[in-house]
Simulated scan of single mutants.
Amino acid sequence: MAGLAHGWDRRSVSDRALHVLPYEGDHDALARRLRTRLTSGPGFAVVTGVPVHALPTEQAQEMAVAMMRPLGRPLPQGTGSDESLAWLVRDEGVSAHTDERRFSEPAYTSKSRGHLHLHNDAAVSPFGHEPDYVSLLVHRTARAGGATVLVDALTVHRVLAHDHPDHLALLHTPFAFDRRHVTPPGRSPVVWGAPFAHRDGHLRARCNTVRMRGAYHLLDRPLPAVRGAAIDALDEVLHRPELALTLELAEGDCLVVDDRRILHGRTTYQDHDDPGRRRCLVRVMAHAG
Results as ranks from 00 to 15, higher is better:
I231E: 02
A197W: 11
F127H: 09
D28L: 14
D152V: 14
D26A: 08
R221N: 09
L85V: 02
G72H: 13
G252P: 11
A233S: 08
D121W: 12
S84N: 01
H19Q: 00
P222Q: 01
A215S: 06
L168I: 02
M285D: 06
G228Y: 07
S14H: 04
P76H: 06
G252F: 10
L88P: 02
A66L: 15
G128W: 12
G228T: 02
A169L: 15
L203T: 06
S125N: 11
F196H: 04
C207Y: 07
L18N: 03
R143T: 02
P165E: 08
A86E: 08
G201T: 11
P174G: 04
R211T: 02
P195N: 05
R213V: 00
A197Y: 10
H117I: 10
R90E: 07
A5S: 14
R204I: 15
S188E: 10
G252W: 11
H287Q: 10
L4K: 00
D259Q: 01
V237I: 14
L238K: 01
H115Y: 08
P195Y: 05
L88G: 05
S188M: 05
A147F: 15
L118E: 12
M68D: 07
H6A: 12
E105P: 12
D178C: 08
D15Y: 13
A2G: 05
E58S: 14
S135D: 08
V134Y: 07
H167A: 15
T39Y: 14
E92Y: 11
A144R: 11
E100N: 03
H117S: 09
L243G: 05
